[in-house]
Amino acid sequence: MSTLEQAVDLDHAIVARRTGPSLNLPALIRRALVYVLLSVAAFVSVFPFLWMIVSATNASPDIVTGKATIGEALLTNVVGFFTQVDAPRIFWNSAFLAIVGTLLTLAVSSLAGYGFEVFRSRFREKIFGGMLLMLSIPFAALMVPLFVMMANLKLINTYAAIILPGIASIFIIFYFRQATKAFPHELRDAARIDGLKEWQIFLHIYLPVMRSTYAAAIIIVFMANWNNYLWPLIVLQTNEQKTITLVIQSLSSAYYPDYGVIMVGTILATLPTLVIFFVLQRRFVEGLLGSVK
């Protein structure tokens, strides 16, 4: 508990500094401890990323013996990756699944989130309550029946099988319903008086006004789709259709995994989400928090 105490005691230190030159020794020590704690946490958090980059320049035997300095094998690893796997194809697969999946999820789920908030009735509230309960159904409980269902529908090895179960996302429906509470209904009333139909109001007024909600939702859904592993692992069984996540996993589960090559793949798999995070950091965090507000 003592470190917690020190962390919280920052308030104390600030107040003390504001009120006068009473920055005494214990406060200084506390402050130093907070910096030590945060520095260690930051280092531990960032280290695997540095490890990934450094390892991409080393040969596999060096990586598993802990060589933590830049090596000369980067080119070999890159060439190795592009010869061992059909990289353009795999990236196309991942990108296609993530983009189409995200667009469909956003379309269907935002429509429902808007619908639940704007057209309320007692009956619909009950359905919505039931949906929130379903939020806690774990995917592990769905994967077996979904697999059998997809097999019966002859959809194994198709992208439809991957995308379909995720389109109606309770989480995103909930997110949009919450966000719609802030949508001014004067806008809707005015549009109705102007004779716009309900779908026109949604498309021409709601959509542009809610741009930032959509942006945050797109980031969350895209990330989830891009990184998805278990369901594609079950449904995609041929190499031509595999995603980058499946490919780096299968490379790493070889008996003698070539870590140099795998690191190149891991960097390429992480890059898109990393770029999205740094470019749209604020939206990213807003999207995360949106569900609890």
Binding site: V108, L111, A112, Y114, G115, V118, F119, I127, E198, F202
Partner: peptide, 8 residues
């Protein structure tokens, strides 16, 4: 109202 939520 139903049309909006029906696909989901």
């Amino acid at each position: 109202g139903w049309l909006f939520v029906m696909p989901a």
